[in-house]
Computed example of a mutant assay.
Amino acid sequence: MNLTPLPAIMLEPAVRAALLEDLGRAGDLTTDAIVPKNHRVTTVLVSRQTGVVAGLDMAMLAFRLIDQNVDVKVHLPDGIAVAPGEIIASVSGPARAILTAERTALNFLCHLSGIATATASIVDAVRGHDAKIVCTRKTTPGLRAVEKYAVRAGGGSNHRFGLDDAILIKDNHIAIAGGIRPAIERARTGVGHLVKIEVEVDTLAQLEVALALAPDAVLLDNMAVDDLRQAVAMVAGRAITEASGRIALDTAAEIAATGVDLISVGWLIHSAPILDIGLDYRDS
């Protein structure tokens, strides 16, 4: 997998904020009281479940922001499948720093690996079809870039990152504009030539109206499988087709078989369970 890591400058604000939230006003009272100042340890990040790794850079940054002398050696990088008991990385150095950063590092690593794992499960479900699995903007405030990175680590692709990426005309836009035609026409006159336009439709009749105005993509919202198949035939390659709405792991393959180009899934991010990963002490 060709997974490009995010620059540290994008990760650091979130990691710093999480560490500061945990350290509060007096730091790690437990560790500072119990662990000698110069004590050094070796620990390992171990997966307790089968899944896909994501978020190691954020975990490493959490340790190193507490103490630059913490050394992290990655054994299984982001995007790699892991089994229970496998060592993902070794973390060695000042014991105080490692214990202080442990929860913040694991929070990011477990959460992002959970997203990657959920993504991989549905990507595997549609294997053999051409449809790509894409995420949505239903993300944790402040963590959108890293959560969308985790989707890529799981083999998925990204939808728009924000409101400024592209035009996506949804049902409320259409209602306020007075219909699909005025909505698309206003959108086209309101942006530059490089901005793509996607329009959401709920019925085949709406799709017919939209296609006459040549949008770049159509979002086929909550359509039955038979309607999706008809919609793909109607579009006939003139626009990108995206299926959306209550996509489940056990229905994804049937939806992909209709020939849609994209399947957008919000729960990959907003409802993905964590991947259980622990930090285990090995020696002193």
Rank of each mutant, 00 (worst) to 15 (best):
I9P: 00
E12K: 07
A14K: 01
V15P: 01
V15L: 02
A17R: 12
A18P: 07
L19V: 04
E21Y: 04
L23N: 01
L23A: 08
L23E: 06
A33P: 04
P36S: 03
P36C: 01
R40P: 01
V46G: 00
S47H: 13
R48K: 15
V52W: 04
A54G: 08
M60H: 08
L61V: 02
A62T: 04
F63W: 12
F63D: 09
R64L: 00
L65I: 07
L65Q: 11
L65C: 05
I66K: 12
Q68G: 10
Q68C: 06
A81E: 13
V82H: 04
P84V: 02
P84Q: 13
G85H: 07
I87R: 07
S92C: 04
T100M: 06
R103N: 09
R103W: 09
L106S: 11
F108Y: 01
C110P: 07
A116V: 01
T117H: 09
T117F: 07
A118T: 15
A120N: 14
S121V: 04
S121N: 15
V123E: 10
A125L: 09
T139A: 00
A145P: 00
V146F: 04
E147I: 01
E147N: 05
K148D: 03
A150T: 03
A150Y: 06
R152F: 02
A153C: 13
G155N: 08
S157R: 12
S157M: 11
N158V: 07
L163T: 14
A166P: 05
I169N: 09
H173C: 10
H173P: 00
I176T: 15
P182Q: 11
A183H: 09
R186T: 14
A187S: 12
G192S: 08
H193K: 07
A205W: 05
Q206Y: 11
E208Q: 15
V209R: 12
A210N: 12
P215E: 13
P215K: 11
D216S: 10
L219Q: 06
A224W: 13
V225N: 09
V225H: 10
D226T: 15
M234S: 12
V235D: 03
A239H: 09
G245C: 06
D250A: 03
T251V: 15
A253T: 13
I255L: 14
I255V: 15
A257S: 15
G259F: 12
I263Q: 06
S264M: 10
V265R: 00
G266N: 03
W267I: 08
W267S: 14
L268C: 05
I269W: 02
H270R: 14
L275C: 05
L275V: 04
G278E: 10
Y281G: 01
